[in-house]
Design a binder for these strands. Structure first.
Length: 330
DNA sequence: ATCTTCGACCGCCAAT
DNA sequence: TGATTGGCGGTCGAAG
């Protein structure tokens, strides 16, 4: 699994800059913008924590036309981008149009000052134009991957992933993958428990919640078969048991070879690898919400020993279980 | 740190 | 004819 430079300690960052700025423009992609507003702009008092401070900045003077025929207004002070902790690029109106230099400058400054920048769908072309993706892995909507690759050959385009996390530069595929990437960021900031509550409010499919892998592979390209979904639910309810591929295949009433193949096609990871990711997520939740010992959590999450838990935990999150607990259970 | 064992994964291919 | 299935075996990595 490819790994690239990342701010591995982001999970234990001390005083996060929680200002999130979404970049609007004439011809705004309404859905992608809506994803950003919903995830970061909706007040969530029920979580009992300080949520993000969400703002919108436009590169064009209003009124801005939005996809769907509405118009909106937004302030145009691009300085807000340079002060943001997180910048969201919710698409771009035309992948062939060079974004305004003022915007690219603001993004470069923000990046230099440590801000995270995430793109949804065609928003990746803005990051690319700013040169912030050179030598890095990135993704976008499958309709644009070829164009992105030919226009920016120095970018390592990943066509088959939901999103790519380079630490401070994050890109996501088709519109809805922006939700997955946003949840991934929220998980980095606030832990799996909070992120799962947000996901539940959004009613997104649970198996897309994933772990903290930097690299989440493609969503289903074929219609999901009901038996596979049933089996996935079954596995999620039996994480603490010893489950082999044969057990899974038997539950799905398929041969193990066919099960493994179908599983990989639909979820993008091999069955056991996915199982391990789910177990790490379970361990994260237990670390955040209980005072149980690491040993006990390891057993409950289905790992044979605390050493095994630590091994996989570190691989997925780049931190140790106890550091993780300290960061999210203050 | 190193070794052994065992299961997972995946390419290949024949059968359906 | 093309797509799907499932068995085989080599390789790799996890677990202890």
């Amino acid at each position: 699994m490819p790994r690239s430079s990342t701010d591995a300690t982001s999970a234990v960052r001390k005083r996060p800059n929680n200002r999130v700025v979404a970049v609007a423009y004439d011809g705004l992609c309404s859905f992608e913008f809506g994803v950003a507003a919903e995830l970061f702009g909706l007040a969530r008092p029920e979580l009992g924590i300080a949520w993000y401070d969400f703002a919108v900045v436009s590169v064009d003077k209003g009124p801005l036309r939005m996809l769907g025929g509405m118009t909106m207004k937004a302030p145009t002070d691009l300085g807000a981008i340079e002060r943001a902790g997180t910048v969201v690029l919710p698409g771009w109106r035309d992948t062939d149009e060079q974004p305004p230099e003022a915007l690219l400058d603001a993004l470069r400054v923000a990046h230099r000052k440590g801000a995270r920048i995430m793109s949804i769908c065609s928003g990746v072309f803005i990051l690319a134009a700013a040169g912030l993706l050179d030598g890095k892995m990135a993704t976008t909507h499958w309709r644009y991957t070829d164009k992105l690759h030919s226009r920016f050959p120095e970018i390592d385009v990943q066509p088959d992933v939901l999103y790519v996390d380079n630490g401070s530069i994050l890109t996501s595929a088709g519109s809805a993958a922006g939700i997955d990437l946003g949840l991934h960021l929220i998980r980095r900031d606030h832990g799996a428990h909070i992120a799962n509550q947000v996901a539940r409010r959004l009613v997104t499919p649970p198996h897309r919640e994933g772990g903290q892998a930097q690299f989440i592979v493609a969503p289903p390209s074929t219609p999901q078969s009901p038996s596979l979904n049933d089996t996935i639910d079954w596995i999620r309810h039996h994480l603490s048991d010893d489950i082999t591929i044969d057990d899974m295949a038997r539950h799905a009433t398929m041969s193990s070879r066919t099960f493994a193949r179908r599983f990989r096609n639909e979820l993008g990871v091999a069955p056991h690898q996915w199982l391990t990711q789910q177990r790490v997520v379970r361990a994260q939740e237990l670390l955040e919400t209980t005072d149980a010992s690491i040993d006990h959590i390891a057993q409950t999450a289905g790992f044979g020993s605390a050493a095994t838990l630590r091994h996989h935990f570190h691989r997925e999150t780049m931190t140790s279980p106890s550091d993780y607990r300290n960061a999210f259970r203050a």
